[in-house]
């Protein structure tokens, strides 16, 4: 085990869960990022504005973090550009085909006890672990 950060993990997780709860209690909506982003890509509707505002909040979060914390969090992207493109295509297509991603299925869906979300989260976690196993320990990329 290395770099284990239990306190910030639980605190940050509670903030994510709190955000999902607030969106449900205020706007009656699920905080599924792929669904929200996918909704913006659909023809404009009465739902487009709040979705765009939510995404704007995500994008501006580092600014708020810097204001509160006085520094920026560490972010390291190890993947090469071709790999980022392939990964992005798979993540975008897969999230829409599977009706959700880490937030919609993993946080909101499991919180509701949805069997679909439990199944989806089990599958994407397993496949992601196997992918890292192959990439890091078998291919050595």
């Amino acid at each position: 085990m290395e770099g284990f950060t239990p306190v910030s993990a639980i605190l940050g997780g509670a903030m994510i869960g709190g955000s999902a709860s607030l969106l449900l209690i205020l706007n009656g909506r699920i905080a599924g990022i792929s669904g929200i982003l996918g909704g913006i890509l659909a023809p404009p509707s009465r739902e487009t504005a709040w979705r765009a505002a939510f995404v704007a909040g995500l994008v501006l979060a580092p600014l708020a973090y810097a204001g509160l914390e006085g520094s920026l969090p560490p972010v390291t992207v190890e993947a090469s550009f071709p790999l980022l493109i392939l990964a992005g295509l798979l993540v975008g297509f897969g999230a829409r085909l599977g009706s959700g991603c880490t937030s919609g299925h993993g946080v909101c869906g499991i919180g509701r006890g949805s069997p679909r979300s439990l199944a989806a989260t089990g599958i994407f976690m397993t496949v992601a672990v196997l992918t890292v196993l192959v990439m890091r320990h078998l291919v050595g990329a």
Binding site: I33, S34, A79, L83, V91, G94, A95, A120, A128, T131
Partner: peptide, 19 residues
């Protein structure tokens, strides 16, 4: 649902990034 989650997991594992 199964196929989408598997494709998503593959992409997530390749770069460590989700939406």
């Amino acid at each position: 649902l199964f196929a989408g989650a598997a494709i998503f997991g593959l992409g997530w594992g390749l770069a460590g990034l989700c939406p």
